[in-house]
């Protein structure tokens, strides 16, 4: 049985596959190779506006590569990748940078700039995009930190923050540009269950507040259960299974079930 057949077999395609009126991201036949190793092999995906899509898969299955392709941090070898209606591979650097401002990316390590304070980290993405005076800038930064509950940490250095705090500051920095799409790379990895739950709730509140469409890569099934509208399982560079959490839990495929064991 091929992977494609597995997708067809999953009893999940009814509502989730209904063609959305408008899409945030549309990927068709995406291929990515590193040397001789094929990471993504004809991958297809549609992310509807306002949807939270969770991507599951083994380590090294190409989850992170997928979201890096979406913002063209990694160039794909084949396939078309449309983000907010723009074919990303055809954009020049200026247009690509404009589009990237509409796509927020929360890195696994939060990727805070070590040499800057939390305030400077948040001000940094605004430097070339907005002409705000000092007071306005301060208000925007304070608001963003208040949204993630970290206003007290405004003058701290990243090294003084805990893992959960770093993730939240990273999220605040990403949200400061008010993105239309959010890409989360393992947002709860390395965090305790309570902080993981807080981050999961924060992801939900981001969607409610900013009306974002999100792709969330995670191994944390509790997190996936809370935030996912739809889940896809990535295997051998293709979509192995797809559906809501409950639908996938009903699957008889042992591999799918093993992913969803809490």
């Amino acid at each position: 049985m091929t992977s494609n057949e597995t997708i067809i077999q999953t009893p999940l395609d009814t509502n989730a596959h209904a063609k959305p009126i408008s899409v945030a991201i549309e990927i068709q036949g995406l291929c990515k190779k590193f040397g001789r190793k094929t990471i993504l092999n004809g991958f297809n995906l549609t992310l509807a506006l306002g949807e939270n899509l969770v991507v599951l898969g083994k380590s090294g299955s190409g989850k992170s590569v997928l979201i890096k392709c979406i913002v063209r941090l990694v160039d794909s070898n084949e396939g078309t990748l449309s983000v907010l209606g723009e074919n990303i591979s055809e954009l020049n650097n200026t247009k690509l940078n404009e589009l990237r401002k509409k796509v927020g990316f929360l890195f696994q390590s939060a990727a805070l700039y070590d040499s800057m304070t939390v305030r400077e980290n948040l001000e940094f993405p605004l430097r070339n995009t907005h002409t705000l005076n000092e007071e306005e800038l301060d208000a925007v930064v304070s608001e963003a930190l208040k949204n993630v509950g970290l206003l007290d940490a405004i003058d701290k250095m990243p090294s003084e923050l805990s893992g959960g705090m770093r993730k939240r500051v990273g999220l605040a920095r990403t949200l400061i540009l008010k993105p239309e799409i959010m890409l989360y790379d393992e947002p709860t990895t390395g965090l305790d269950p309570i902080t993981s739950k807080e981050i999961s709730k924060l992801i939900l509140s981001v969607r409610e507040k900013y009306n974002t469409s999100s792709i969330i890569i995670t191994h944390d099934i509790s997190c996936a259960k809370i935030i996912a509208d739809r889940i896809i399982v990535l295997k051998d560079g293709m979509c192995f299974a797809e559906g809501t959490f409950d639908e996938l839990q009903q699957s008889q495929d042992p591999e799918i079930r093993s992913y969803l064991e809490l």
């Binding site: 913002v71 404009e98 890195f107 993405p125 430097r127 995009t129 990403t174």
Partner: peptide
């Protein structure tokens, strides 16, 4: 990478 994805 974080700088790059924020359009800088």
């Amino acid at each position: 990478d974080a700088m790059e994805v924020s359009g800088i």
